[in-house]
C-alpha cells in the first residue's frame, strides 16, 4: 500500500540529496522520510474518518441516547466505544464529564467514556498502524475499549457518587437534554470541508511530536545495543510489567512521540505486551489529567479511579505477554 512512498523516499534521498544508498546516513534519512510521511497520511485519513463519524453521532446525541434508553449493561460498552471514536481533547474532558453527570448518566458509564477517550485516540491509532501494523493496532484498540467497559463497570459498582465535588453533586440528575444546535441543520457535503479542515489542524498540531518521536526513535535504533532491554527487562521477569506501568502513570506524553520510542523498545527486546501497557499508562493516565479532574472530583475519587485503571493496565500487560 505504501510502495510508492518508499519509491519517493528513495528518490528524494538517493537522487535529489545524492546520498549513497546503503550508507548509514542514507538509510537513516530514508527511514525517517518514509516513516514520517506514512504516519502523517495515516493520521489524516483516520482523523478525517473520525470527523465524519462525529458529524453524524456527536457526543451530545450519545448522551441523550444513554439518558433515554435502558440498555441493561450495554451502556458501558457504548460509552467506551464512543470514547474511542471521539477525538480526544483534554480541555473537553471536564465539560463532558459534567454534561454526563448532569444528564443523570451513572458515574460508572461516565467513567467508561473517560477511560477510553484518551486511551484509544486517533493519534495513537495512526501511529500504531504505521509502526506495528493492523493486527497489533486492533489488539490495542479492542483491549482499550474492553478496559474502559470493565473499568467503568467496576467503578460504578463502588458507588463513588459521594466523592464528587459539591457543586457537581448539586447539578447532577437534572436530566437536561442536550441541544444539538448546528449539527442537525446542515448537510453532509456542507460539513465536509470543515471536517477536512479540522483533520488538517489536528495533523498540523501533532506534526512536531511525530518528527521528534521518529527522530529520537531513529537515533535510539543506532545507539542502543541489540538486546539491551531484553537483558534487563525482557527476560520475562513478572515485575517488569508493573514497573513499566508505574513509571508511565504520572508521565504524560503525546501518543505521536511515544509510539516511535516504544517501537525501539520492542525491536530491542521488550515484549510487546509490556510495551503496550507502558503506552496505555502514558496516554491514559497522567498528572495533568488528574489536575483537570480535581475540579469535579475529590482527591480520593481521583486516587480510586487511577488505582483501578493502573491495576487493569498491569493486568492487561500480563495478558498480552501471555497471548502475543
Amino acid at each position: 500500500m505504501f510502495n510508492w512512498l518508499q519509491n519517493f523516499a528513495d528518490w528524494l534521498i538517493y537522487s535529489i540529496f545524492n546520498i549513497a544508498p546503503g550508507s548509514h546516513l542514507g538509510t537513516a534519512l530514508n527511514f525517517f522520510v518514509y516513516d514520517t510521511l506514512k504516519i502523517l497520511i495515516l493520521l489524516f485519513v483516520i482523523v478525517f474518518f473520525m470527523g465524519i463519524v462525529n458529524a453524524y453521532f456527536p457526543v451530545e446525541r450519545l448522551k441523550n441516547y444513554l439518558q433515554n434508553t435502558k440498555l441493561f449493561g450495554l451502556e458501558y460498552v457504548f460509552s467506551s466505544i464512543f470514547g474511542a471514536l471521539t477525538p480526544f481533547c483534554s480541555c473537553s474532558s471536564v465539560p463532558l464529564f459534567i454534561g454526563f453527570v448532569q444528564g443523570g448518566i451513572p458515574l460508572g458509564v461516565t467513567f467508561s467514556f473517560l477511560i477510553t477517550s484518551p486511551l484509544v485516540n486517533e493519534v495513537a491509532i495512526a501511529m500504531f498502524i504505521g509502526m506495528f501494523g493492523p493486527k497489533a493496532t486492533l489488539i490495542y484498540a479492542l483491549s482499550g475499549i474492553l478496559l474502559g467497559t470493565l473499568g467503568g463497570w467496576l467503578l460504578g459498582k463502588l458507588h463513588l457518587e459521594p466523592l464528587l465535588s459539591d457543586w457537581v453533586k448539586q447539578i447532577s440528575n437534572q436530566n437536561i437534554q442536550q441541544n444539538l444546535y448546528e449539527t442537525e441543520a446542515r448537510t453532509f457535503y456542507q460539513r465536509l470541508p470543515e471536517i477536512g479542515r479540522g483533520a488538517w489542524s489536528i495533523v498540523k498540531d501533532v506534526l512536531i511530536y511525530v518528527i521528534i518521536g521518529i527522530a529520537i526513535g531513529a537515533a535510539m535504533h543506532g545507539f542502543v545495543p541489540e538486546n539491551f532491554f531484553s537483558q534487563y527487562l525482557g527476560g520475562g521477569q513478572w515485575w517488569t510489567v508493573p514497573l513499566a506501568v508505574l513509571i508511565a502513570v504520572p508521565m504524560y506524553a503525546n501518543a505521536a512521540a511515544i509510539v516511535p520510542i516504544i517501537d525501539v523498545f520492542v525491536a530491542k527486546g521488550v515484549p510487546l505486551g509490556t510495551a503496550i501497557a507502558f503506552m496505555m499508562a502514558t496516554v491514559g493516565l497522567s498528572i495533568p489529567e488528574a489536575t483537570l479532574l480535581k475540579k469535579v472530583m475529590s482527591l480520593k475519587l481521583i486516587a480510586i479511579f487511577f488505582g483501578v485503571i493502573t491495576l487493569a493496565i498491569i493486568f492487561s500487560g500480563f495478558l498480552f505477554n501471555l497471548l502475543l
Binding site: 480541555c91 471536564v94 463532558l96 441541544n179 448546528e182
Partner: peptide, 25 residues
C-alpha cells in the same frame, strides 16, 4: 467551569453570540 456549564454544552471551545450558542467544540 461553573459559568461555562450554565450554557449546557459538552465540548469547548464554544462561541456564544448575543446569548445564543453558535459553534461548539
Amino acid at each position: 467551569m461553573m459559568d461555562i456549564m450554565k450554557y449546557n454544552i459538552m465540548t469547548t471551545p464554544s462561541l456564544v453570540i448575543d446569548d445564543a450558542i453558535t459553534i461548539k467544540g
